[in-house]
């Protein structure tokens, strides 16, 4: 075999049809080939919603969860602008750019974030987010490779979409399956729409300072419920989440 780098292997495995799940390739290999500590891919579902599809465990997953819970950060910015957001040093970002996210991202051990759009023309399909524990710019070569990976992922998303529709019935392979299950439960408990249920869950996670996935697990395990509090009959729209005694 010729002297090809890791990037070739990553691009090659990304293209393979997933045997199960959404994307087969190992995100850790991808991170390694791009010289970063973690990668994450989220699909944009419209109206600020996103679906995490592929991520290294640890800080990258935490960062996606934080952005999902808080609704701000490089990912949401890229979703809006469809242009890359490169932040080589999170400690140097003005605090008011992402006031809720910045302290939590730094606490999660992320100091540099490079977020690229997965786009076709002006339509942004999703985001590829690279993160590093240490601040510093992404070398030009790695950034060029990141764009190659982003383009590959775009083609993977477009191509796999049809397959995903066909295999929807095989079970829960979404990272946030539990979040949607919890939204379903909350919609019944609080008698609200699924969209409102999701907002209630996100707000609860935000107040508790927990990742939204953790909060959803609590709901599905019935440690937390969102029924109307018996002490407040008829409280108009002010439904409160409360922990069971």
């Amino acid at each position: 075999m010729s002297s090809r780098g890791d990037l070739a292997a990553v691009v090659e495995t990304l293209r393979l049809a997933p045997s199960g799940g959404l994307i087969d390739a190992d995100p850790a290999d991808c991170a390694l080939s791009l010289g970063v500590d973690g990668v994450a891919v989220s699909a944009l579902m419209g109206e600020g919603a996103s679906e995490l599809l592929w991520a290294t465990s640890g800080a990258s997953t935490v960062l996606e969860d934080l952005q999902y819970t808080l609704g701000e950060g490089p990912g949401p910015d890229v979703a809006n602008s469809c242009a890359a957001v490169l932040v080589p040093d999170l400690t140097k970002v003005p605090a008011d750019r992402w006031p809720a996210l910045l302290p939590q991202a730094l606490r999660a051990g992320v100091e540099a974030v490079f977020c690229l759009p997965l786009h076709i023309g002006g339509a942004c399909l999703g985001t590829l987010t690279l993160q590093c524990a240490a601040a510093g710019p992404l070398p030009e070569r790695d950034l060029a490779d990141a764009w190659i990976v982003a383009n590959t992922l775009t083609s993977v998303l477009v191509r796999n979409a049809e397959r995903w529709t066909a295999t929807a019935e095989d079970g829960s392979d979404l990272y946030r399956a539990v979040v949607h299950q919890a939204a379903g439960m909350i919609s019944v408990q609080a008698e609200v729409s699924l969209a409102e249920a999701l907002l209630l869950l996100r707000a609860h996670a935000f107040r508790q300072g927990t990742p939204v996935v953790r909060a959803a697990e609590d709901v599905v395990a019935r440690r937390v419920h969102f029924r109307n509090d018996g002490d407040e009959p008829g409280a108009s729209g002010r439904r409160r989440d409360c922990t069971r005694p």
Binding site: I120, L157, V158, A161, T165, S172, V179, Q181, V188
Partner: peptide
């Protein structure tokens, strides 16, 4: 293309939501 991707993912999301609705009911 974007609509197709969203539809593909939504087809999975609604199943999870329905599971939650039924589990609660």
């Amino acid at each position: 293309e974007r609509a197709q991707l969203r539809a593909a993912l939504s087809s999975r999301i609604v199943i999870e939501q329905a599971k939650g609705i039924l589990a609660e009911r």
